[in-house]
């Protein structure tokens, strides 16, 4: 395809991505080095019969004029990145000096808002990704053993947790694990503690969020593994049988290698999806116990005082984070492409 034709075909899509993905990245980058203007304070002299007194008051007009003139705010350089709510260099240095040990150090660091969000996001990604892949594989193997007749309905039911709106799916689970809900009551009975409340406990909240994550991601892994199992090369499998491979050896040497590329692909997708974990925290009203990076940005953006600069700085750090996470795949793809071309 000629360059010019290509350009015209790609233009709408490219423009949309340029304007609403690339430019916003520039926008967060700039916003993150500007802070809102402080209000203009003016000193006024109030004179009465009894003499004059000086008072300060906010000059609304001047403030508005300043904000209109420079809507970006004032340039503050990287100071937002290093403040307490983000990378918190000064605080970490302080903790490092005073901490009694490494455990204490990390404990205190993860109390800082950004590190708190980062640690939850990474824990969630690191646990949900492999767990949902493993679950999906087991379901796929089990479904593959079913007679053809049952497979359709089983796939239908299995798709539901994935297809349902994340906010809604998480709400449904949340209501069930409420202390007054069916699962909550069951857990209380199981633990023998009528006062048990998932909402009140940080570790239980984290566990529930991860359970939700696996529940909603496993179907994706299942579908892909299931499709992969349909394309396992029959000849190779049969020659393995004739060569005397046991059931386990056939899985180990034929089926798993066949599924490996799919696993890489899914791990990539799931890392992206899990790293942006957000809706379940809103649904679970879990903000007090677990914050993800996305939720951190969301809570900065929402509310009466929109902390745009702070949100922008967190966004930049988040984007940097996900690029670091997927960079091995990017580098590998790039190398693979280089080989194909050479």
């Amino acid at each position: 395809m000629k360059h010019k034709t290509f350009l015209w075909f790609f233009l709408p899509s490219g423009m949309a991505m340029f304007l609403f993905i690339a430019m916003p990245i520039v926008s967060v980058l700039t916003q993150s080095v500007y802070a809102p203007h402080e209000q203009v304070i003016r000193e006024v002299e109030n004179c009465t019969l009894f003499g004059c007194s000086k008072a300060t008051q906010i000059d609304q007009e001047a403030t508005r004029a300043l904000r209109d003139a420079e809507p970006m705010g004032r340039f503050v350089g990287p100071s937002i990145y290093t403040d307490r709510n983000h990378l918190a260099f000064a605080e970490i240095a302080g903790i490092w000096r005073n901490a009694s040990g490494l455990g204490d150090f990390f404990g205190q660091v993860t109390n800082l808002p950004f590190y708190d969000a980062l640690s939850f996001t990474l824990t969630y990604t690191a646990l949900v990704t492999p767990l949902s892949l493993a679950f999906g594989l087991i379901i796929a193997l089990a479904v593959n053993a079913l007679p053809q007749l049952f497979r359709g309905p089983v796939i239908f039911v299995s798709l539901l947790p994935m297809i349902v709106t994340p906010l809604v799916g998480a709400l449904i689970l949340f209501w069930m694990i409420d202390a007054r809900g069916v699962l909550g009551a069951a857990l209380q009975a199981l633990a023998g503690d009528p006062g048990l409340s998932i909402k009140a406990s940080t570790p239980l909240m984290w566990t529930m969020l991860i359970v939700y994550g696996v529940w909603s991601s496993a179907p994706f892994a299942f579908v892909i593994y299931y499709a992969g199992l349909q394309t396992v090369p029959g000849d190779t499998l049969e020659s393995a049988m004739i060569d005397g491979a046991s059931r386990w050896e056939r899985i180990r040497y034929v089926i798993l290698p066949h599924l490996l590329p799919l696993t890489t692909f899914m791990a990539l997708i799931k890392i992206m999806d899990n790293f942006r974990v957000f809706e379940p925290i809103v649904s679970f009203s879990a903000g007090a116990h677990a914050k993800s990076l996305s939720y951190f940005i969301y809570s900065d953006l929402g509310g009466e005082t929109r902390l745009l600069s702070s949100a922008a700085a967190t966004s930049v750090l988040t984007i940097a984070g996900i690029i670091v996470l997927i960079s091995p795949v990017l580098v590998r793809t790039w190398h693979a492409f280089g080989r194909v071309r050479a």
């Binding site: 790609f10 490219g14 991505m17 609403f20 993905i21 690339a22 430019m23 916003p24 990245i25 520039v26 926008s27 967060v28 916003q31 809507p71 970006m72 992206m272 790293f275 942006r276 957000f278 990076l293 996305s294 940005i297 969301y298 900065d300 953006l301 929109r306 745009l308 949100a311 922008a312 967190t314 966004s315 930049v316 988040t318 984007i319 996900i322 690029i323 997927i326 990017l330 793809t333 790039w334």
Partner: peptide
């Protein structure tokens, strides 16, 4: 272009939202 859009796909939408609000 495909590789760049893969990177775009990786970005949490909320990070972009924080870029939209001010403009």
């Amino acid at each position: 272009l495909l590789l760049i859009s893969l990177v775009f796909r990786a970005m949490p939408p909320i990070t972009l939202v924080s870029g939209y609000l001010l403009p």
